Computed example of a mutant assay.
Amino acid sequence: MALAFLSRLETGLLSWRAGSRLSCFHCSETMRERNALAVKFNGSPQLVCCHGCLAILQTIEQNHLVDAYLENKASLSGAG
């Protein structure tokens, strides 16, 4: 009984220390939620892993390439 409790406690502590993980909106790299950067893209907030991905999304929006970007992103996700 004590061993099962310790196992659950250890699992809980490890998941707490690791933090929630999610994928970057742009490059799909796995990142910790607490390290994510927020950017408003195409009217809604998105989370990205780094300043490079943030800059790419801002540049796409500034150059009015959002539709082409989203079409390409959809075709890439459908191919896998």
Rank of each mutant, 00 (worst) to 15 (best):
M1S: 11
A2L: 15
A2P: 10
A4R: 12
F5S: 10
L6T: 05
S7K: 10
S7N: 05
R8L: 06
E10M: 04
E10A: 04
T11L: 09
G12A: 11
L13M: 04
L13P: 02
S15V: 07
S15T: 06
S15G: 07
W16A: 13
W16T: 07
R17F: 08
R17M: 09
A18M: 05
G19Y: 02
G19H: 08
G19N: 00
S20F: 03
S20L: 05
S20V: 00
R21K: 06
S23V: 05
S23F: 02
C24G: 08
F25W: 02
S28G: 00
S28E: 07
E29S: 15
T30G: 04
M31N: 09
M31H: 01
R34P: 01
R34I: 00
N35S: 05
N35P: 01
N35Y: 01
N35C: 05
A36T: 08
L37F: 06
A38D: 08
F41P: 02
N42S: 13
N42R: 12
G43E: 06
G43R: 09
P45H: 07
P45M: 08
Q46W: 02
L47N: 06
V48T: 11
C49G: 09
C50F: 04
C50G: 05
G52K: 15
C53G: 13
L54D: 09
A55E: 07
A55P: 01
A55L: 12
I56V: 14
I56M: 14
L57N: 06
L57Q: 11
L57K: 12
L57Y: 05
Q58K: 15
T59K: 06
I60A: 09
I60F: 07
E61G: 11
E61V: 13
Q62I: 13
Q62F: 14
Q62E: 15
H64L: 10
H64D: 13
L65D: 10
V66P: 07
D67Y: 04
A68V: 12
A68G: 12
L70S: 10
E71C: 01
K73E: 12
K73T: 11
S75N: 12
L76P: 00
L76T: 09
L76K: 13
G78N: 04
G78E: 04
G80C: 01
